[in-house]
Nucleic acid binder design. Structure first.
Lengths: 244, 244
DNA sequence: ATGGCGAATTGATCAGGATCAAGGCCTATT
DNA sequence: AATAGGCCTTGATCCTGATCAATTCGCCAT
């Protein structure tokens, strides 16, 4: 079963159109994952989104956009964490991506989104109308280039996930831990923004297997797990040797 | 073990630069898969590539480009079939895509390719220097739009493969058969351009599992298999009910 | 502190697909 | 037509990860 059912609502898109919707509610405990990301938007695009976009807040588990809704906006995580996913007809959920502070999501090529997006933790997100961005891009080639580069990184990331999905459970989990460390710019210790269920749905495993694998890695002195969210990479060389 | 080892050569890229390299050898039995593709390049881009590009021939199993080579060219299949793939450190091969006549491959965003490409059957391919295409795109917005659309389709296809990879062996094989039927524009009967090993490496399965699954589907009167390459979709509704 | 609840861990068993091992079929070449 | 070799199929067994089933842990609210 799913950790959280997707609640479809189009309220958000109609609300933002006329004006910036006021923050729905104050954030209680913004995500601890606020490190620099290696996949952050370029400086120019980032600045444009900050200046022209609307900052919105989303509560934990609330929907940001839904599959098959028109893809009229581009999003950037300010703080917190976002997951994008698709639901299979058998009810399983495949998480297609996690987005950390500084990262852009909602990039779509057709008229509609092909996946849904939800906040994992209470999150702030900058939202920019695609049409407005296109207008800027027409006058500023740098923006176009950044959008193109962003697309390339997204494609690369998806391709890397395909490689991950054909590997063993241990390789997937280790690959995930190292990927998160890199994206959170963490040296040894970091806090996972997502639950075991999220990780399992991302890696195509069950929560039991994820849990067992983490326990085994801890037993092998490769990592330490504190309170189910805190990860300490105790032997990075050993971990790196396990993947790919 | 791999069906065919990748033989690295950069001869091709240096050869094409000064002039169109003469066809290395005549094609013997060009691929039977020459149907219209649903993912073909747009008319404008297609025409540009035909007019400005060089047509080259590649023998079965010969390399078209290699991973980490500079991505200076864009390619379009004229006839035959091409596979793109990456080799994992444990020696396994992950086929990341098959390209049928009319389809464009070699799309890269960084300076280098992230995967290798080989001809599956003796194939003709139109090759166009990226720089030349960029020059045309500067004057022709339609080309830019087509390139963008192409990128979107590519991204979508990769995302769909992720969904396929987390499903059961039967779902993967059926999904593959239906995908090929669609891309080959086949009503009921078609000829697979690739071997069992290629299919297995594409779906993240072993050849034995692919073979057994096909046999089971034949036993269930869903398909007919003739001579290991010919596929007849006998009960399309039943097949469609098995996937997703 | 205490109770309650959702999330995570741990255990036992099951099943799907990998692996190991023959055998059979198709194609190419002579 | 005969033969060789690669590709494919089929069979038997093993093993990884899923599934079913209890606990246990951690976090709130009281």
């Amino acid at each position: 079963m799913l950790a959280s059912a997707a609640v479809r609502t189009t309220a958000f898109h109609s609300a933002i159109q006329p004006a910036i919707r006021p923050t729905a509610k104050p954030l209680r405990g913004a995500s601890p994952a606020a490190g620099k990301s290696t996949d952050a938007a370029g400086a120019h695009l980032s600045e444009t989104m900050r200046l022209m976009g609307a900052t919105m807040s989303f509560a934990r588990n609330s929907e940001i956009f839904g599959e098959d809704e028109p893809a009229d906006y581009l999003y950037k995580v300010v703080n917190g964490c976002v997951r994008t996913y698709r639901i299979l007809s058998d009810g399983r959920r495949q998480i297609t991506g996690f987005y950390l502070p500084g990262e852009v999501f909602g990039l779509a090529f057709g008229a509609d989104h092909t996946e849904s997006a939800e906040a994992i933790a209470d999150s702030k997100v900058v939202v920019l109308k695609r049409r407005a961005l296109d207008a800027v891009a027409d006058r500023d080639a740098a923006i176009t280039r950044e959008l193109f580069a962003l697309t390339g990184r997204e494609l690369r990331r998806v391709q890397d996930r395909i490689l991950l999905l054909i590997e063993s459970a241990q390789e997937r989990v280790v690959g995930f831990l190292l990927e998160m460390a890199e994206r959170l710019a963490a040296e040894r210790t970091y806090e996972l923004p997502m639950s075991r269920q999220d990780i399992a749905d991302y890696l195509g495993l069950t929560i039991e297997t994820v849990s067992r694998t983490l326990t085994a890695l801890e037993g092998a002195a490769a990592i330490e797990v504190g309170g189910s969210r805190r990860i300490v990479l105790r032997n990075r060389a050993a971990l790196a040797a396990m993947v790919n």
